[in-house]
C-alpha cells in the first residue's frame, strides 16, 4: 500500500506509537546517564543524586508501557506461535480465526486494565501520592499510572487492528498471510 492510500487514523496511530517508542528510548538513555551520574557524584564529589532508586523503580513502568504497543505492532510480543503457524499453513481460516480471538482477548484485557487503573490515577492525583520520603525526595505517582493507562489504550488499539486483520483473513476478505 502506498502512503497516500493509508487512511489518516491509521497514520495517526502509527505516529503516536512511534512517538511513545521514541520517548521510552530516550528514557532508557536518561536512566543510564542518571545512574552513571549518581555513581560519579557519590564517589568523586561525595554528593549522590537524591531519589535515584525511586526513579529507577518507577522508570521501568514508564518504559515498558510506552513501548509495549510498538513492540506488539512489530510482532515482538511474546507468544508461542509454533502450533498456530502450523494451523495457519494447513487450515488458514481456522488459524486466522484463532489469531483473531487471541488478538481480541488482548484488546479486551488491556481496555479493562486501562478502565480499572483510571480511578486509581484520579485518586493518586487528588491526594498527592508520592514515592520517597518527605523532606528528602518525592516522586509523584499519578504520571506513572497515566502512562499505564495510555500505554494500555495504545496496546488495545494495536490488538484491535490485528484482530480485525485476522478476522478479515478468516472470513476470506483478505488473502491469508504469506500470499500478499
Amino acid at each position: 500500500m502506498s502512503r497516500h492510500e493509508t487512511p489518516l487514523p491509521a497514520r495517526l496511530f502509527t505516529g503516536v506509537i512511534a512517538l511513545a517508542n521514541a520517548a521510552a528510548t530516550a528514557w532508557i538513555i536518561f536512566l543510564m546517564a542518571l545512574i552513571v551520574a549518581d555513581v560519579v557524584g557519590r564517589n568523586v564529589f561525595l554528593s549522590p543524586i537524591a531519589g535515584v532508586p525511586e526513579i529507577v523503580k518507577f522508570s521501568i513502568i514508564g518504559i515498558v508501557f510506552l513501548q509495549i504497543a510498538h513492540t506488539h505492532a512489530a510482532g515482538q510480543m511474546i507468544r508461542s506461535d509454533g502450533l498456530l503457524s502450523m494451523i495457519i499453513r494447513k487450515r488458514p481460516r481456522l488459524g486466522h480465526a484463532m489469531d483473531a480471538i487471541a488478538q481480541a482477548t488482548g484488546c479486551g484485557l488491556t481496555l479493562a486494565l486501562a478502565w480499572t487503573v483510571w480511578p486509581r490515577m484520579i485518586k493518586a492525583f487528588e491526594r498527592g501520592e508520592f514515592e520517597g520520603a518527605a523532606g528528602y525526595f518525592a516522586l509523584p505517582v499519578w504520571p506513572f499510572l497515566a502512562i499505564i493507562i495510555g500505554g494500555s489504550l495504545l496496546l488495545s488499539l494495536s490488538f484491535a487492528v490485528e484482530a480485525l486483520r485476522a478476522a478479515r483473513r478468516a472470513g476470506g476478505r483478505l488473502p491469508p498471510e504469506g500470499e500478499r
Binding site: 557519590r42 561525595l46 554528593s47 525511586e54 520520603a133 523532606g135 528528602y136 525526595f137
Partner: peptide
C-alpha cells in the same frame, strides 16, 4: 532508609 538520610545532613557523611 530514605527518611533517615536526613539524619546525616551537614554532618560531613554522605
Amino acid at each position: 532508609p530514605g527518611p533517615a538520610v536526613n539524619w546525616l545532613k551537614e554532618t560531613g557523611a554522605v
